[in-house]
Amino acid sequence: MVDKIKVEDLSCYYGKKCVLESLNISVVQNEILSIIGPSNSGKTTFLRTLNRMSDLDSIYSRRGDVYLDSASVFDMDMEELRKRIGMLFAMPISFPMSIYENIVYAPKRLGLIFKKSEQDALVEQSLKDAFLWNEVKDRLKSSAMKMSGGQQQRLCIARILAINPEVILFDEPCSGLDPISTARVEESMVELKRKYTIVLVTNNVKQASRVSDRTAFFLMGKIIEIDTTDKLFVSPKKKQTEDYITGRFG
């Protein structure tokens, strides 16, 4: 068991308000770690700190450190870091261009591929890995905005796979999707775990129990409990955790 990401004594602030307090947590290589908790518990802030999307916010500040393979992410080149840690947002955000263009967009900008044949192969592989290939292989040149929400979300996954990251962050990826699309996305997540390390933030407790290896419960900016998913759901140690997963609050 290798720690892919190690968070040491991390505190985050928006203005003067403390949203995350002295966090210590690790993400193990090739696992799915779920983070559950009510809204405003700091889940998304935590996720956005990992790939430093939070740095864009002018009132955001932090203490503590985050290590990716034992190198601090705050010393890394921002673009290099985000190439290694991909992120999927709550709403599917396809760019207003063709499906094909959506996938080769980032690799082209980052200078990863040049030849047309390489691009074709990459598009096919990424779409296959995201379980989308069969649905769209005949209309790669049509606009991505015409697809359904679930398809768009899987396209976004394919887009991330195309830059071959090491870690993928999922920020409530199914909050806007119907149950069938949700199932497809979850299916691909479990598949992806073989190659990638995954952190999943979700409001859906059942989703966490379905897909993740370990689960952490956040409340008011603190980790209340973290354990293997089986243990956390079957015999939570803390009262608050039990209340939350059984639906008594949140």
């Binding site: 999307m53 864009l56 673009e79 991909g86 992120m87 947002f89 955000i93 760019f95």
Partner: peptide
Amino acid sequence: VPYSFREASWALGVGRWQTIRHI
């Protein structure tokens, strides 16, 4: 142009100017 387009592009490791230029 929706802000989310920019975020999605940055999250893919694409830099600021490249995002502006291409998105």
